[in-house]
């Protein structure tokens, strides 16, 4: 480490991000436990409700998010290699994929709300207990995941600015590396949400 780098501690910065992700694992873990307990109590109703989910849109969204993770990984490698222009292109592509994910999610939610299925709706309140719980968990878990995607899109937008202004560079890439860790983590959460809400049979 040269004097020009100052007191930078890459490994410390990375471990800090991992510690934050550990708390995120336990945070989402709590909701996955709720899902598991209620699914074990109402297996038939969870099965029937999952059949109402739009499998096509869910699958497309999974592909979109997995692809965005590829773009993010490439963008980080590009910064480390000093190809800043290439990195900005792939960061922008990651943002676009994130926005596409949110747009598709919005269409899914809109479809459901249009059928009267939303928390506390008269239609949902007349359904069986297991179905109320399934859709409640669906809205809370995909909603909180969606908030994470939105935060990720905002943070990556800052990284585009930082890369363009020379704040993120080949020698100083902790910010974008940590952003990538966060983005990939959000991808992993969706990897589990997808089978639980769309593929339960």
């Amino acid at each position: 480490m040269g004097a020009a780098e100052g007191q930078r501690d890459r490994i410390g910065a990375k471990y800090g991000m991992w510690f934050f992700l550990f708390t995120e694992i336990l945070f989402f873990g709590g909701m996955f436990i709720l899902y598991a307990v209620y699914r074990s109590k109402y297996p038939a109703e969870f099965h029937a409700s999952a059949g109402e989910e739009n499998l096509l849109l869910g699958s497309i969204n999974t592909a979109v998010l997995l692809t965005s993770s590829l773009f993010m990984a490439v963008a980080i490698s590009a910064v480390k290699k000093g190809s800043y222009r290439l990195s900005v292109v792939f960061q922008a592509a990651t943002i676009l994929m994130g926005l596409a994910f949110l747009a598709i999610k919005a269409v899914e939610w809109y479809e459901k709300v249009a059928r009267g299925i939303y928390p506390n709706s008269p239609v949902l309140d007349k359904m069986k207990m297991g179905e109320i719980l399934f859709f409640g968990l669906y809205y809370v878990m995909t909603g909180i995941h969606g908030v994470h995607v939105f935060i990720g899109v905002c943070v990556i937008s800052f990284m585009v600015y930082f890369t363009l202004t020379g704040n993120v560079t080949q020698e100083n890439y902790s910010k974008i590396e940590n952003t990538g860790l966060y983005w990939h983590f959000v991808d992993i959460v969706w990897i589990y949400l997808f089978p639980l809400f769309y593929l339960i049979t």
Partner: peptide
């Protein structure tokens, strides 16, 4: 269902270990 959760774990592992 178990098989799908296993596949999800393999996917999560690939993202964790490589990305």
């Amino acid at each position: 269902v178990l098989l799908n959760l296993f596949i999800a774990t393999v996917k999560a592992g690939l993202v964790l270990f490589f990305f």
